[in-house]
Design a protein around this nucleic acid. Structure first.
Lengths: 188, 188
DNA sequence: GCAATCCTTTTACATTTGTTAAATAATCAC
DNA sequence: GTGATTATTTAACAAATGTAAAAGGATTGC
């Protein structure tokens, strides 16, 4: 749990009691590659923190598996479109590489918001940051070529490219696997 | 200001004192078409509410004017990547149609967070919703054709399509104006 | 009302990416 | 280890979108 509290502390200092209260609504899971952490059709009521390994959010578009995002060590992962609206998610969370995950009970977390304003503030800041990253990603998708996006991913998160199957990378970049292969062949 | 308080109330009920405190850090502006509300290079310290008219966030990519988003009556507009990181924005906010705008002083707003937890909660919810919309927009950009995206825009916000120059719509959709013309010609 | 400017469409051609299918290469289960 | 499965690459062709240039339309300022 130490990693999680250190992660939190980078956003917002918490009083000891708040740290304890959060710890009490968390549980740690070890999950094997290819298992689903959450499946399609369920309403998201958990926020996850990746302690070890890699997870991805994916969904099906016209029967094709599309990766929406990856999360690796020391990052948060959640299907926010379900978490914040209370509607069932069309997306699933899958473990891409054997993982140790901390699961935060979102319902209990939101209750803690009333007792500990610092916890509400912490998660406000966490999701503000995630929001900014999402805005930046739109720019990347919309106005960079597929090759530029691949090179940027290689530069920003080389370990993702190394540790994740290319078919997941391709759909994350918004292109087909064939296109990604072509791009990789061109670069060498 | 009534519209703004009604907008807030849809997210979070506020005690009277909180409403008054917010009202005191707001000012109302009338701005003419084509004027910039905020310019490129300045750090965003204001959150805007569009009471009347249309505004857009735009920036230059390789010298070409790109529209990131539109805001019309009863919506919030802010350059969050600057607001939440404190760094200068590469983006500007421009008025697309004569507008009445409520400007909320973000610095003072963030101070109010300490006095009124309900205000912090209100804006947490506002930006959580905006975050969800941004996540959904990525899906739309990445996995729908340009024609599908245009048709969706026509359906979801027909008044934007009617009231905004097509060159702004084109870059918002991530395509060239020529492509948009082709799509429009195809539909008829 | 007119010239100047800006917006939109059209055309022709270039480039990128998608689609389908097949061939290798790598990994997994037993 | 071996066969089966899965992942990746390659090839040939199709479709979508971009680029550049020109021509109409619409709007604006005086």
């Amino acid at each position: 749990m130490k990693e999680l509290l250190m992660y939190f502390n980078r956003f917002q200092a918490l009083p000891k009691e708040a740290e304890i209260a959060i710890t009490e609504i968390c549980s740690t899971l070890s999950i094997k590659k290819n298992e689903n952490l959450q499946s399609i059709g369920h309403t998201c009521r958990t926020i996850y923190f990746v302690k070890k390994g890699i997870a991805r959010i994916y969904y099906y578009k016209d029967g094709i598996d599309i990766t929406e995002s990856f999360s690796t060590e020391n990052t948060i992962i959640a299907r926010v479109e379900s978490l914040f609206t209370g509607t069932p998610s069309r997306k699933a969370i899958q473990i891409v590489e054997d993982a140790v995950i901390v699961a935060i009970n979102a319902h209990k977390l939101f209750q803690l918001y009333d007792t500990f304003p610092s916890i509400e503030r912490l998660f406000r800041k966490i999701f503000e940051r995630a929001y900014v990253e999402t805005v930046n990603r739109i720019e990347s998708i919309q106005f960079h070529s597929a090759e530029e996006r691949y090179l940027a991913l290689l530069q920003d998160t080389p370990n993702i490219v190394q540790r994740v199957p290319l078919k997941c990378i391709a759909s994350y970049l918004g292109i087909t696997q064939v296109s990604l292969s072509r791009i990789r062949a061109n670069i060498k």
